[in-house]
């Protein structure tokens, strides 16, 4: 009973605080605090509801329990992180985005390929590519190589489509100006078209961060060595050790946000001149 009361009270306090903060003039402080308070309130209500209604930990563990498990199994989480994120997702991400970038430049050089490959690429980008996972696991074995392969396939087409689109982002006037300077293809590419394509390229890089993690985790559902985040999630669900599952999800959330945030930071540093970044 007491826990339910605490839940209701924290909900009221959080709500009042946010209403009050939102009415204040917008500043860095309020735009940061309002979502933080919202999140904290949700966690408090979650904790209170689990304890107040005595929900079985097999269904939904309390946040405090998850936090304890998180701290206790840091070594397991770290091992899974290295296996899935560093070996699987990151290597696949670099390989996939890199090759998509290079192929996009080739496609851009030949209008025939552009007209043929781009619609096909757009089509493939909308397909459920995760389904390739079992095939690639069969081809490349259970270890991280197959996960990296799934990630490559998943990030390739979104990245390709974005880069090709970006390379077409310059207008006729700018390209004509480069021609009046008698600049070669390479010079135009390096000094005009690649910089102009940067926002599109980064858009692709940002979209694919999440895809890379999803690919690496889902591929592990189809078979993996006895470590990795996807492996841990699927086996712990089977053992009803949901606190460990939630701890893995916390890791996935942190990694996902950090990955995305890192790419966004890089974008800010590299395309500081673009109108969308000034403001």
């Amino acid at each position: 009973m007491m826990w339910i009361a605490i839940g209701v009270i924290s909900w009221l306090i959080g709500w009042r605080a946010n209403v009050w903060l939102a009415a204040q003039p917008t500043s860095r402080f309020t735009t940061l605090m309002v979502p933080v308070i919202f999140g904290l309130t949700l966690v408090m209500i979650w904790e209170a509801a689990v304890r107040g209604f005595e929900i079985s930990p097999v269904l939904l563990p309390a946040p405090s329990v998850i936090a304890v498990t998180f701290v206790q199994s840091l070594d397991i989480l770290w091992q899974d992180f290295v296996q899935t994120v560093i070996k699987g997702a990151l290597s696949g991400y670099i390989l996939g985005c890199g090759s998509a970038f290079l192929i996009a430049i080739v496609i851009d050089r030949f209008p025939f390929l552009q007209r043929g490959l781009l619609p096909v690429g757009n089509f493939v980008a909308a397909l459920p590519i995760v389904g390739m996972a079992p095939i690639l696991v069969m081809w490349f074995g259970f270890d991280w190589q197959s996960k990296a392969a799934v990630v490559v396939v998943m990030v390739f087409f979104p990245m390709l489509v974005n880069t090709v689109e970006g390379l077409q982002a310059t207008d006729k006037m700018q390209r004509d100006l480069m021609r009046t300077y008698a600049s070669s293809y390479m010079q135009t590419l390096l000094k005009l078209r690649l910089p102009a394509a940067m926002p599109f390229i980064f858009n692709g890089l940002k979209i694919t961060t999440t895809l890379a993690l999803i690919g690496a985790i889902v591929a592990e559902f189809f078979g993996s060595p006895i470590k990795g985040m996807g492996f841990r999630i699927s086996t712990s669900v089977g053992q009803l050790a949901l606190d460990l599952v939630w701890a893995e999800i916390v890791v996935a959330a942190i990694v996902g946000s950090a990955f995305y945030g890192g790419v966004a930071k890089l974008e800010k540093a590299l395309t500081f001149w673009h109108p969308s970044q000034r403001g």
């Binding site: 939102a22 979502p35 308070i37 999440t210 889902v218 996807g230 999630i233 893995e248 946000s257």
Partner: peptide, 18 residues
């Protein structure tokens, strides 16, 4: 102010894992 940042942040999380 409270929900929108979480909606955007949640897009960076590999939700399929759960």
């Amino acid at each position: 102010m409270s929900v929108m940042p979480w909606v955007i942040a949640s897009q960076t999380i590999p939700i399929l894992a759960i």
